[in-house]
Computed example of a mutant assay.
Amino acid sequence: MTFVFVLWTMTLPGCGREISARPPLLILDTDFSSDADDVGAAAVLHNLAAQGKVNILAMMVSSGNPWSVPCLQAVNAWFGRPEIPVGKAADGAVQDESAYTRAVAEAFSRRPAAAPDAVQLYRRTLAAQPDQSVTVVSVGYLTNLRNLLQSKPDAVSPLDGQELVRRKTARLVCMGGQYPSGREWNFHRDAEAAAYVAAHWPTPIIFAGFELGKDIVTGAALRRLPENNPIRRSYELHNKLAGRPSWDQIAVYYAVMTANGEQIPFWSKIHGSNAVSEDGSNRWLNEKNGRHAYLVQRGDSAKIAARLEQLMLP
């Protein structure tokens, strides 16, 4: 697939030289099945892309739910981006029940496209990008990322997965874990993958934990949308538009805005290392030279929720 980027120039004050700029590059990895916040995160990402703040290279599904991929494709098409490639997890991925994926896929998808294997799509997408240019955002299980790191050289790239990630990605923003310690859904559902990625991902990781999103509730404002809207329909099927914690939206919003160099007053970072155990629990190590960080809320919950919910609406 050919990716087309819009380039522009700006002059730095006082120096008279021009530099080129373009929206930051991002890959989203989502389970898109067990909760509606995945759908909310996709809406946030699409609306930020419409503002010119991000270029969505690809999306990956980490759930084995058979309707997750066509549901995500339907949402992408609704936002006018049916060309975004969606990768599916390999056999053996976590199988989730979902209240919305099948209904939304059948109602809003004209003709689901064939989905490539997620690792193959990761390798093809990363290999085509400039070095240290891609932000990966994971808001589901870390199954695909573990499989990517363990992938071997192929016709797409002579690099193995570990080196390809090291070469092409700037960082990973991961919704997973609880801080400074705890046990959270995305980690414990594929604990081996979570432990492997935390230990072996070669570029910096910023974690957005369970405690960060549980009090940032969004979704009720979707009642204002027409009934034939897939975002509204997903939340309606999941819990009758009662609102849900915004775990995944936080990770996407933080990743995009900071990739644009914008200062966000809502969160600060604590640096160190994240140790993930075989049962999916995690604990924070205050290591001076650790490659990890986790976010701590500094802003008002109502203001954060209002900002995110606004980005979930057309």
Rank of each mutant, 00 (worst) to 15 (best):
57 L>P: 04
13 P>V: 10
51 Q>Y: 09
57 L>Y: 00
40 G>W: 00
30 T>R: 00
70 P>Y: 05
25 L>K: 01
17 R>F: 06
37 D>S: 14
13 P>H: 12
46 H>R: 09
45 L>K: 05
8 W>Y: 11
12 L>I: 13
54 V>P: 01
76 N>Q: 13
43 A>S: 12
69 V>A: 05
55 N>D: 12
12 L>S: 09
55 N>P: 05
20 S>P: 06
17 R>W: 08
57 L>I: 07
26 L>E: 03
45 L>F: 12
39 V>T: 14
72 L>I: 12
9 T>P: 07
6 V>T: 12
72 L>W: 12
40 G>R: 03
29 D>I: 05
11 T>W: 01
43 A>D: 08
48 L>S: 02
21 A>G: 06
69 V>N: 02
34 S>P: 04
11 T>V: 15
54 V>R: 00
6 V>A: 09
43 A>V: 02
28 L>F: 02
53 K>Q: 13
14 G>C: 10
48 L>V: 07
30 T>S: 15
17 R>L: 10
31 D>R: 08
22 R>L: 02
23 P>N: 12
44 V>H: 00
66 P>L: 06
66 P>R: 03
24 P>R: 00
34 S>F: 03
62 S>I: 01
64 G>I: 07
49 A>Y: 01
74 A>K: 02
30 T>L: 13
38 D>C: 13
18 E>S: 10
4 V>S: 12
28 L>H: 05
41 A>R: 02
64 G>F: 11
62 S>A: 13
34 S>R: 11
36 A>Y: 07
21 A>F: 07
33 S>Y: 03
28 L>C: 08
64 G>M: 12
25 L>R: 02
50 A>G: 11
55 N>F: 14
41 A>P: 07
53 K>M: 14
46 H>M: 12
32 F>L: 05
8 W>V: 04
31 D>L: 11
58 A>R: 00
29 D>Q: 14
45 L>R: 03
46 H>I: 00
35 D>L: 05
62 S>M: 06
62 S>E: 06
65 N>M: 01
49 A>D: 10
70 P>S: 14
67 W>S: 10
67 W>R: 03
27 I>N: 01
68 S>G: 11
11 T>L: 15
36 A>S: 15
34 S>D: 15
38 D>T: 08
32 F>C: 14
56 I>D: 03
45 L>Y: 09
23 P>F: 00
24 P>V: 03
15 C>M: 13
29 D>M: 12
7 L>C: 06
55 N>M: 10
65 N>T: 14
60 M>D: 01
50 A>P: 04
68 S>N: 07
18 E>L: 10
23 P>W: 00
26 L>Q: 00
43 A>W: 01
11 T>Y: 06
38 D>W: 01
15 C>Y: 09
48 L>F: 03
8 W>L: 05
33 S>C: 14
48 L>E: 10
27 I>S: 06
35 D>P: 02
33 S>P: 03
20 S>Y: 06
64 G>H: 09
50 A>Q: 11
13 P>Y: 10
27 I>L: 09
76 N>E: 11
13 P>D: 15
54 V>W: 01
4 V>K: 13
56 I>Q: 01
55 N>I: 04
